[in-house]
């Protein structure tokens, strides 16, 4: 049974690799606006002129893996897929920490929503799925052509899991519903403020604020910013700035404490763990 489950995931891994590759190529060919690629995936970590080539290399790698897993039995491609998804997981975790505004870019421009737990969970799942395919000795094409009902069920479960972990589907529905992406829709600041006040980032930083109303608010693309006057525990005046993503019911909310000279401040924690 474990072998059947593992085998059933092979078509999904191949499908996602092929889709990811095609979407990345489409994004590059769309010739996005200047700076458009700055919000897409780990490519933001390389200089501007290398972003399109980096995306192209990633797409070529994915296509190679998909083809290798489909048409050969060589374990190199299976191990490479495991390594690719494991590395992707690390890259997304790191990217989420360093650039919270960028999307994962996994499926090109469709994946512009900021990286969340779901995107990371999806790469973890794909790592596990591709590790499972190592157990299957046959070639990929045979797995896809000689599929049984049990395998089809396992594939469907895997597909449902992947769909549940894909924020791109929600984004696609929202675009069809509103006929425009989030960046082009007028959205009231009041709604974003209400979502901010319901967030954990607000709870974490509320004690630093000296006023209940923002001193400034503005919008850039799909982010609404709120700046509040605040004070650190040692009395230094600071700005506490929140960024609320404007799409989705439970949007990502980021916060930062900025000193008067514009440098980020790491606020002191209320309690510091002391080892005995």
């Amino acid at each position: 049974m474990p072998a059947t489950v593992a085998t059933a995931q092979l078509p999904l891994v191949v499908l996602l690799l092929a889709l990811g590759s095609a979407a990345k190529v489409a994004t590059i060919r769309a010739d996005a606006e200047p700076g458009g690629l700055t919000r897409l995936g780990p490519a933001v970590l390389v200089p501007e002129r290398w972003r399109a080539p980096a995306l192209a290399i990633c797409a070529a790698g994915e296509l190679t893996l998909a083809a290798g897993m489909t048409f050969t039995t060589h374990p190199l491609f299976r191990w490479a897929a495991v390594g690719f998804f494991a590395m992707s997981t690390y890259a997304l975790v790191d990217l989420r920490r360093r650039r919270p505004d960028v999307g994962c870019g996994c499926f090109g421009e469709v994946s512009s929503r900021p990286i969340g737990v779901r995107s990371i969970g999806r790469t973890v799942l794909l790592t596990a799925m591709s590790a499972g395919t190592l157990a299957y000795p046959g070639i990929g094409w045979a797995a896809m052509s000689g599929i049984t009902w049990t395998m089809a069920g396992c594939t469907a479960v895997g597909l449902a899991l992947l769909a549940a972990l894909s924020p791109e589907l929600e984004e696609a529905v929202a675009r069809l519903r509103h006929r425009a992406p989030c960046e082009q829709r007028p959205l009231a600041p009041g709604t974003a403020l209400a979502r901010l006040r319901a967030s954990t980032a607000w709870d974490d930083h509320r004690m630093l604020l000296t006023g209940g109303e923002p001193v400034d608010t503005w919008r850039e693309l799909c982010w609404r910013f709120f700046a509040f006057a605040g004070r650190t525990p040692d009395g230094a005046p600071v700005d506490v700035v929140f960024a609320v993503y404007l799409s989705g019911r439970r949007p990502p909310v980021r916060a930062a404490v900025v000193s008067a000279d514009g440098a980020p401040v790491e606020p002191l924690r209320e309690s510091i763990a002391v080892s005995a």
Binding site: R99, D216, W223, F225, V241, F242, A256, G262
Partner: peptide, 20 residues
């Protein structure tokens, strides 16, 4: 109306919160 004294800080604040 937007306060002009805060507008010039927007880029720095947005960079701090989003890691730009």
């Amino acid at each position: 109306m937007t306060d002009p004294t805060t507008v010039h800080r927007r880029r720095a604040l947005a960079a701090a919160v989003l890691g730009r």
